[in-house]
């Protein structure tokens, strides 16, 4: 007998509750959202796995004593800090002088992250901060790097640096920070805009050819198909993205 009445009462309470809550939210603060989806930059197209960025370095053109590539890298990436002990300073790219003790032949070449297809730094990173983008660029996610330096133990090229002291005057496009590990990014901020890495652009001899290893029409792919080149520590089978000629 009372059932229909109960039903309508329950219905009323339900409707009233929803309505009040709705009105409350609307009245709380017009224009203010309690939960807001964070808005970063407009989403851009992600890195494509059809591309593999690489670099071919002709050491026969690379002059001993020239460090234009190093300077360009430091300027582009805001590596401007001075450190008391040079061994604690960051070097994303460095010039190495080589001499063959058997015949005295000398070479000079830039060394940086080799952007391996099988990067040991990515394998060992406990949090996944060391990662390889779909287009082959190996990066460190500044936000989840815990500064354990295991990647530095694992890199066969000594390509990584640890930020030993607080930093100022950073390039907003290249966030760096105390207590994190960093290395050459192939100037990813430039590559994503269709530009070459700063080092390749600065080289006065044009010794650094940057391009898509997967594109058979690219200059780098054509030269690699035509001319002899070497991977440093090829014995480790890391399939490096940076190749050298003349060594």
């Amino acid at each position: 007998m009372n059932e229909p009445q109960d039903k309508s009462r329950r219905g009323f309470i339900g409707t009233a509750a929803v309505g009040t809550a709705g009105l409350g939210i609307a009245a709380l603060a017009p224009g203010l959202h309690l939960i807001q989806v964070s808005q970063a930059d407009t989403p851009t197209q992600g890195a494509s796995s059809t591309v593999r960025w690489g670099m071919l370095i002709d050491t026969t053109k690379c002059a001993s004593g020239c460090d234009a590539c190093v300077k360009a890298c430091n300027t582009e990436n805001g590596i401007v800090e001075t450190v008391k002990d040079a061994r604690q300073g960051a070097q994303w790219i460095r010039k190495i002088e080589l001499k063959d003790p058997k015949n005295g032949r000398e070479h000079s070449l830039p060394m940086m992250c080799q952007h391996c297809a099988n990067p040991p730094c990515v394998d060992v990173c406990p949090t996944g901060a060391s990662m390889k983008r779909a287009d082959g660029i190996v990066l460190v996610d500044r936000h989840i790097c815990i500064g354990c330096r295991y990647c530095m133990m694992a890199c066969p090229y000594k390509a990584r640096s640890f930020v030993h002291q607080p930093l100022t005057e950073q390039n907003p496009e290249v966030p760096r920070g105390l207590g994190c590990v960093e290395s050459c990014t192939f100037c990813v901020q430039r590559v994503d805009k269709g530009l070459k890495p700063a080092c390749a652009e600065a080289c006065p001899e044009g010794a650094m050819t940057f391009g898509d290893l997967n594109d058979p029409n690219s200059e780098i792919a054509q030269r690699l198909a035509r001319e002899a080149s070497t991977q440093v520590r090829a014995d480790l089978k890391l399939n490096t993205g940076v190749r050298y000629q003349g060594i």
Partner: peptide, 24 residues
Amino acid sequence: LGRADRLVVAMTHFNPSSVFGWNV
């Protein structure tokens, strides 16, 4: 750690190929 304050990151982000990761 360089970022000892990120202990929670170490516990919530796991890379199965890392020996350090196994240790977590």
